[in-house]
């Protein structure tokens, strides 16, 4: 019962993810941040098997940081997405695969373009203008309009929303009352 969304616009990507940490019927946390900044111009929203998610997200975060330190420049969003996909695809056919779904949004400083990648735990990857994971995707992908919040069966009380554009990554407060 998790959900994450992302949309691209001219020169930016917005990602939003719910903030619940739940086990079966018990909600244990309502202020979880499921969107990691992987660099100055790269955001990753992750969901999936609890445990795998944070473990994998940190693995990605540390590795991309290491590569940035070694090569004196961050990976471009396309290259970062390919690396993450490769990691998931390799993991899928290993003894203990990660079950993590990812939305990767970034701003490519080399060609001044915003990019969004949808990835699932199988290593499926696609470059899209808007994307969603979880039950929200059944609504968001066909509608992607204001109806999303109203019609969602499990109406999440709050969302973490982050933007990445030429100026880098930043967080946005979302007014959930409207």
């Amino acid at each position: 019962m998790e959900v994450s969304f992302a949309i691209t616009g001219k020169g930016y990507v917005i990602l939003a993810a719910d903030q619940n940490a739940a086990r079966s019927i018990i909600k244990m946390k309502a202020d979880e941040d499921k969107i990691k900044a992987l660099g100055s111009h790269l955001l990753m929203a992750y969901s999936g098997e609890p445990g795998d998610t944070v473990q994998f997200a940190e693995y990605v975060e540390r590795n991309l940081r290491l590569q940035q330190m070694r090569n004196n420049h961050p990976l471009r969003p396309q290259a970062a997405a390919s690396w993450v996909r490769r990691s998931i695809a390799d993991s899928l056919r290993s003894r203990s695969p990660y079950a993590v779904n990812i939305l990767l949004g970034g701003y490519d400083m080399a060609n001044k373009q915003a990019k969004l990648y949808w990835m699932d735990y199988l290593g499926t990857q696609v470059d899209v203008p808007f994307a969603a994971h979880g039950y929200g995707s059944y609504f968001a992908l066909s509608l992607l309009d204001r109806e999303v919040q109203k019609r969602l069966v499990i109406s999440f009380p709050s969302f973490k929303v982050k933007v990445v554009d030429e100026g880098g990554v930043r967080e946005v407060e979302l007014d959930m009352t409207v």
């Binding site: 996909r85 998931i88 695809a89 699932d120 290593g123 499926t124 990857q125 696609v126």
Partner: peptide, 8 residues
């Protein structure tokens, strides 16, 4: 077929 394998 399976998209992940298509890409791989």
């Amino acid at each position: 077929g399976l998209a992940t394998d298509v890409l791989t």
